[in-house]
Structures are given as C-alpha cells and as structure tokens.
C-alpha cells in the first residue's frame, strides 16, 4: 500500500497495522541515518528512532498531505537528535564496532563502507548531515534546508564543502590501500 493511503488509514480509522507498515518502510533508512548522526552508537540510534516514530504517530494529524512523508519524518528525526545532543555529549563509537553492521556485505564492500564512515567522521556535523540527506537519501537541497531548518545557501555550502573534503579523503584512503596491496 502507498504511503498516502497508509497515513489516511491511520488518521481515519486509527489503524495501527497501517502505521506498522509505514514504520517497516522507513525503519532501515531512518535507523541508519540516526546511527550515522549519533556516531554509530546503534542502541542510542535505535532508541532515538523509536522516539521519532512515536512522535510521528502522535503528530500524524499535523502532517500536510502535499508534503513528502520522508521529509516530515526526517525533520522530526533531526529535531529529536538536536534535542538529544543539547542534553548529552554524544561519543562516537570506535571503528571496530562498525563491522557489526556490515555482516550482510562482502569484505570488499565492508572495507569501502568503513572508509566512507571514517571519512564522514572528518566532516563537521552540519556537513555530515547535509551530505547524508542530499547524497545518500536523495533529498533536494530545499528539502534538506527544510529538515535542518537552515537557509538554502548554507545547506548548499555544507554539501559542496563536505563533498570536496570527502572526495579528497576517499582518494587518500584508496591510494593508501593501493600502496599497501
């Protein structure tokens, strides 16, 4: 069933199964995004993801049908995460723990994924989030600006600078890997 139809069922009939389907459609992407934002602490990210979906359920009547559900959901997620880091100082997980999430990929892909995550850690938090939203999630710059509550130009700057830095870092890692081989 499509997202709009599921939302309608939740709002009109209080259908919790329809909301469960919405969760299933978005849980993987949202949990991965939160893992990236919190520094790959999977338990913390999943706790925040639960909070995000609970807020979404409670506020679903505020969702504007003409907007994209994913943008709306990510706005809640971003605000929830900001509120969390206002209260606590988030520690990034050691890189060794990242392999846990890679068990379904080949060794080569897992290595590339760890390189990317290592490179992403070198970026500032707004750059990392802007890059993630625009490049990984495919949101437009406008949607990302809406989610992050930042001016459009600022988001474009974060994406461009982050992209330059990330490309540079990835090239360095690849050169180092080729040198070791």
């Amino acid at each position: 069933m499509e997202t709009a139809a599921l939302i309608k069922r939740v709002l009109q009939f209080g259908d919790q199964h329809a909301f469960a389907q919405l969760v299933q459609q978005h849980q993987s992407a949202l949990r991965y995004s939160l893992r990236q934002w919190v520094g790959w602490d999977t338990s913390l990210a999943d706790d925040l993801a639960q909070e995000v979906f609970l807020k979404a359920y409670r506020k679903l009547h505020q969702f504007q049908a003409q907007a994209k559900f994913s943008t709306w959901l990510y706005r809640i997620a971003y605000t929830t995460w900001l509120n969390y880091i206002d209260k606590q100082r988030v520690q990034e997980a050691p890189l060794d723990e990242l392999t846990e999430a890679r068990c379904d990929k080949s060794i080569q892909q897992a290595g590339a994924a760890i390189d990317i995550e290592r490179a992403l850690r070198q970026l500032t938090v707004p750059q990392r989030v802007a890059i993630h939203l625009c490049l990984q999630r495919g949101f437009s710059h406008g949607d990302a600006a809406d989610i992050m509550n930042l001016p459009l130009g600022t988001v474009k700057t974060h994406v461009n600078r982050g992209r330059e830095q990330l490309t540079h870092l990835m090239r360095d890692y690849q050169e180092a890997a080729n040198g070791n081989a």
Binding site: S28, D46, L54, R102, I116, L135, Q136
Partner: peptide
C-alpha cells in the same frame, strides 16, 4: 561519491523494532 555512499549503506533488518514500537 553518491554511488559509493549509497552502496556503503547496509539494509538494517527490522529485528523486532516495529513490534517493540
């Protein structure tokens, strides 16, 4: 870069997440 980023992302299995929620 976009392709690399997207390919690096694993699918996270539900693993009871939805049920708990």
């Amino acid at each position: 870069l976009t392709t690399q980023l997207q390919q690096a992302e694993p699918h996270i299995a539900d693993g009871g997440f939805t049920d708990q929620l």
